[in-house]
Every structure is written in structure tokens, then in C-alpha cells.
């Protein structure tokens, strides 16, 4: 397992998660997350090399629906939820970069 969590790691993770941390919060979360990850090192007490991962406890496969159109939501209801709507669309401030 990797080295201890650094302040830079936390800053990077916050950026990825679209959260802004103050300097104090950065310190606090570095310590707290570090403790949790430290505890997680107990998983290394077992040799898990040959164990397959399980992402989900649900064993059913091939769950599909038929290709049938069902009613959509009323546009006015949907746009009424929006913080800002213009011209029947969701309005956002300018986008700085292209989508990946």
C-alpha cells in the first residue's frame, strides 16, 4: 500500500471532487482521511493476491427492458426546478474547457 496521505493529495482530491478547502480544512482532512486510510491498512494482513474482487452482491445478469417509449416529464415542471433556465434550457455560466 502506498505512502501516507499528503496535504497535496487532499488538495488534488478536493479539486477532482469540485470542493474548495480552506487551509485549516486542508490540515484537518489530511489528518482525518490519513487516519481512516491507516486503519484500512489492516486489509493487508491477508494475502489477497488470488482473491477475485466483488463489486456487487447481486448475481442476476442481463436485466434489460424492451425498447418502448414512455412519457417524459413535463418540461415546465423540470425547468421550474432549475436554478436558472433560459429559452427552455438550463442556463450555466461560461464553460472554460471542452468536455473530455
Amino acid at each position: 500500500m502506498s505512502d501516507a496521505l499528503s496535504r497535496d493529495d487532499v488538495a488534488k482530491v478536493a479539486r477532482l471532487a469540485r470542493l474548495v478547502l480552506s487551509e485549516d480544512e486542508l490540515d484537518l482532512y489530511t489528518e482525518q482521511l490519513g487516519q481512516i486510510l491507516e486503519h484500512a491498512r489492516d486489509m493487508n494482513s491477508l494475502d489477497l493476491t488470488d482473491v477475485l474482487p466483488t463489486a456487487h452482491p447481486f448475481g442476476v445478469t442481463n436485466v434489460v427492458r424492451e425498447d418502448v417509449v414512455t412519457p417524459s416529464l413535463d418540461r415546465e415542471v423540470v425547468l421550474a426546478m432549475a436554478p436558472h433556465a433560459v429559452d427552455h434550457r438550463f442556463a450555466v455560466p461560461r464553460i472554460l474547457g471542452e468536455a473530455p
Binding site: 418502448v68 417509449v69 412519457p71 417524459s72 427552455h88
Partner: peptide, 14 residues
């Protein structure tokens, strides 16, 4: 089940 349709009025197939 929303319609997969090109050219609908904005935000009507949601």
C-alpha cells in the same frame, strides 16, 4: 423510456 429522437423541442425528451 424517453424518445430517442433528433430535432425535438429542447428538454422535452427527459
Amino acid at each position: 423510456g424517453c424518445a430517442n429522437h433528433f430535432g425535438s423541442e429542447p428538454n422535452t425528451n427527459i
